[in-house]
Write a protein that binds this DNA or RNA. Structure first.
Length: 531
RNA sequence: GGCCCCAUCGUCUAACGGUCAGGACGUGGCCCUCUCAAGGCCAAAAUACGGGUUCGAUUCCCGUUGGGGCUACCA
């Protein structure tokens, strides 16, 4: 692929990668993840079993943190790709963390599916996958520290009451924020009510003043503190919430760059406030634009195929999908579109990320797929295509042994016509099965003239007499016979096409004959099947 | 409703004050040709609107409009 210069390294926003402070004094060991049966790697490299903190470096550490409430969708995959690319680009570490703290909606099957999709895409992670739920004790401890330091407080207000007020405010079309009733509670009262068994949440006490941060892709973003509600850190059932868990984990994992979807920009001020309250150094935030459906609304189930898995099932190859995804919201700054892995890594930069949402374009994906299919080495193509042939009941092991060369020559005919892997068995069928499956319309179109059978038989005889069954010899024979018969070569060829394949469309006739082989070609011309 | 963000061909995008606004997908035409593809060539197609700033705005500023996101004891 063309070697081209990429966007300069001088960034739109150059921000120093600072080392995150390790601030957790009594960081306990990661509990093992046997809670729900299935066990994912839970060995954390951040601190070893002796409790000795690892040497800190200024190495980039990025994470992809999907929640296993569904399959990996294209938006998530694109985010993961950018995370991965940035880590590879900088020689950093790519961490996978499963945010499964919503126990209601999370499932192990989804986690497995996400892992499979990432593997399919070749997005290999260096650490993890960690389960966020393994950190709940630490998350709770973090919240307690915030209460102790006066950054958070317990709130006894019933959720229903707040929800009702919220509804009322919405009906009135006015803004609603929790009124901080419980902020005024004295420590005695809090203790008393807790001792009484009253349920409480822990809320973050949002400080006065605006929060400003420099997003690596969007730029400066400022949000007035007054618009941020005292959000819940720990639920009344003691489950930590998202904001707390993410910040606690990102600090713990020493994440230097938070690259995630733009749907998180409004969460960022809350999280920044948490970092500050915890005395931790901020990571660089980079919010990548969203991927939209054709109707320009956020991709969802009603847009049809949105999971990575569904594209794999549709015969898209991972290299193509990845290349396509990379160009959704990122550009190298020039006209290059086809990138192999190394080029992609070399050219990728946060500066090249767009600020505009992108509409998913399946047609362009198909084009990328075609491009990649053309270039795939035979071995690799066969590996991709084999399962499809098996599904269609057309696979034979000899394709990889005695008939390997033949199989490759057939694939060569099919390639330029294949936009997806699924088309290979479909098109290869006529080369593999013994019978000819005649398409009535094709027969009607090219075989209705009674002379055509005679002519094809004549062609069969000539080919039989040919010393060498080669492309040039066959072509000369066909053209010669057509001239003698006073018909167009095309008429003879379309008849031969139907006699051989049963179809009116196929790869080049002569190439097709060569793949069928001399015997089959001649016998089909001499003895045209039914009809 | 409030808050945040965004705005170049239908779509993905290039342009970082001066270009005939470039490329790609898709679309149309032509070429190649035994059909279908692939490939080659050509074409149509955009700076949302209104104000500024400037010798000069796609580019900088403001407003309008449009779009998206967030607005939970979801993540």
């Amino acid at each position: 692929m063309a070697k081209a210069g990429c966007r300069g390294a001088a960034g739109r926003f150059v921000q120093q990668n600072r080392i995150l402070e390790q601030h957790h004094p009594g960081a306990s060991r990661h509990p093992s993840s046997s809670r729900r049966g299935k066990r994912f790697s839970s060995i954390s490299p951040y601190w070893d079993s002796t409790g000795i903190r690892r040497r800190m470096t200024n190495q980039v550490r990025v994470r992809f943190a999907p929640s296993p409430t569904g399959y990996l969708h294209v938006g998530g995959a694109r985010t993961a790709l950018f995370d991965w690319l940035y880590a590879r680009k900088t020689g950093g570490v790519f961490i996978l963390r499963i945010e499964d703290t919503d126990t209601e909606r999370s499932s192990d099957e989804m986690t497995t599916g996400i892992l499979e999709s990432m593997t399919w895409l070749g997005l290999t992670w260096d650490e993890g996958p960690f389960l966020q739920s393994d950190g709940v004790d630490r998350h709770r401890a973090t919240a307690e520290r915030l209460v102790e330091s006066g950054h958070a407080y317990r709130c006894f207000c019933p959720a229903e009451a707040i929800e009702q007020k919220r509804q009322e405010a919405a009906a009135r079309k006015t803004d609603f924020k929790y009124d901080r009733t419980c902020l005024r509670l004295g420590p005695e009262e809090v203790r008393g009510r807790l001792a009484n068994g009253e349920k409480a949440v822990i809320r973050f006490k949002v400080p006065q003043g605006a929060v400003t941060f420099k997003d690596a892709v969007i730029g400066d973003i400022t949000i007035a503190g007054e618009t941020i509600e005292d959000f819940v850190l720990v639920r009344s059932n003691t489950q930590p919430t998202y904001h707390l868990s993410v910040v606690s984990d990102d600090i713990e994992m020493r994440i230097t760059h938070v690259i995630r979807g733009a749907d998180h920009v409004n969460n960022t001020p809350k999280q920044i406030l948490l970092y500050q309250a915890l005395g931790a150094t901020l990571p660089v935030f980079a919010h990548v634009p969203l991927i939209l459906g054709p109707d320009k609304t956020r991709m969802s189930k009603r847009h049809g195929a949105t999971s990575v898995q569904s594209y794999a099932e549709q015969g898209i190859i991972p290299e193509a999908f990845r290349n396509f995804l990379a160009l959704m919201g990122w550009s190298p700054g020039n006209d290059q579109e086809l990138f192999d892995t190394e080029e992609l890594i070399r050219c990728f930069s946060l500066e090249g990320i767009s600020r505009t949402n992108a509409v998913f374009n399946p047609e362009k994906l198909a084009w990328f797929n075609l491009q990649y299919i053309q270039k795939l080495p035979d071995e690799k193509l066969i590996a991709y295509v084999k399962p499809e042939f098996e599904k269609a009941g057309l696979w034979k092991d000899e394709f990889q042994t005695e008939k390997y060369a033949w199989f490759c020559s057939m694939l060569a005919l099919l390639r330029p016509r294949a936009k997806t892997l699924l088309e290979f068995p479909r098109q290869a069928r006529m080369f593999i099965i013994d019978a000819v499956e005649f398409d009535p319309a094709a027969v009607e179109k090219s075989m209705n003239d009674p002379s055509i059978r005679r002519n094809l038989a004549a062609l069969g005889q000539r080919l039989e007499a040919l010393p060498d069954f080669t492309h040039d010899a066959v072509e000369a024979t066909i053209r010669g016979l057509a001239t003698e018969l006073g018909i167009k070569p095309g008429a003879l060829m379309s008849g031969a096409r139907v006699a051989l394949t049963g179809q009116s469309v196929s790869p080049g006739l002569i190439e097709t004959m060569l793949v069928f082989g001399r015997e089959k070609t001649i016998s089909r011309l001499l003895h045209i099947g039914p009809q």
